[in-house]
């Protein structure tokens, strides 16, 4: 589905959301109940650099300051953070973290945040946007990944075929939507044959009040250890030194 198709389907009551020449998505959608949804995002696989972060974060801060409690939808199709010497020199890590913090602050102020991965999503740009929301959903065909297999083969110095074979048996590193859902990063995959507005409303009604991704990963079997490790560390921290975790 194209961005325009998705938006028309999501907001049959109307919207003014569009991707600008910089491929940044900004706008407002109308819900059937008369309420609004603030939409930010990044389109067409564009990398997210410092120039892209500033308007997106500014919009989130304005929404919080306005105080109307409208949900925020973060639409993501990005190949990752911008890889440029200048962006690094100016402290891209601070810019990306700033956007993630703004989204977390919105949740803290009671604005439900929903991530929608409809294209690519990778690395630092993924952390700054979709992975900083309360709940992340995806459309079939989305390609979330930390790194593609050829690049991964280069960095790990393992043959690409070996990685491809391994990726069929373990979701822990395999690029793609199925693996990201199994580890608990993607909560739901929407059905494009059904109206998206109803699925968005259902997702909104299911926004968890705390981070459930470790529990989700354990339940789905793609990330079995995290939830248990969290519990064991907390037990030892709270119970003093070396209390056996039961």
């Amino acid at each position: 589905m194209t961005l325009d198709d998705i938006l028309a389907n999501l907001f049959p009551a109307g919207h003014d959301v569009a991707a600008g020449p910089d491929r940044l998505i900004l706008g407002t959608g109308r819900r059937r109940n008369g309420g609004t949804v603030q939409v930010i995002g990044i389109a067409d696989g564009e990398p997210l650099g410092i120039a892209g972060v500033l308007p997106l974060a500014e919009r989130v801060l304005r929404v919080i300051a306005a105080g109307d409690g409208a949900p925020i939808l973060v639409m993501v199709d990005t190949c990752g953070q911008r890889m440029a010497r200048r962006d690094e020199m100016l402290g891209l890590n601070e810019y990306l973290a700033h956007l993630a913090k703004c989204l977390r602050l919105a949740s803290w102020h009671g604005y439900p945040t929903v991530g929608l991965n409809y294209g690519k999503a990778a690395a630092g740009a993924f952390l700054a946007t979709a992975l900083a929301t309360d709940i992340l959903v995806a459309l079939p065909g989305a390609e979330p990944a930390v790194m593609d297999l050829p690049s991964m083969a280069r960095v790990t110095k393992l043959p690409e075929d070996t990685l491809r074979a391994l990726s069929r048996t373990t979701p822990v590193f395999a690029p793609g939507l199925a693996a990201m859902a199994e580890v608990g990063a993607v909560a739901e995959v929407w059905d494009p044959r059904q109206p998206l507005d109803a699925q968005f409303e259902a997702t909104l009604a299911n926004v968890p009040g705390h981070d459930v991704r470790d529990a989700l990963g354990a339940a789905r079997g793609g990330r079995r250890l995290t939830a248990d490790l969290v519990r064991r560390v907390a037990a030892q921290a709270t119970g003093g030194a070396h209390v056996a975790a039961s």
């Binding site: 977390r104 803290w108 993924f126 822990v172 395999a174 990063a185 991704r213 990963g217 990330r223």
Partner: peptide
């Protein structure tokens, strides 16, 4: 990278926990 999805998600969870 050998645990890329679990690692990426751990960073997201840690960032959320820090704030």
């Amino acid at each position: 990278l050998q645990e890329a999805n679990a690692g990426e998600l751990a960073v997201a969870e840690v960032m959320r926990a820090i704030v």
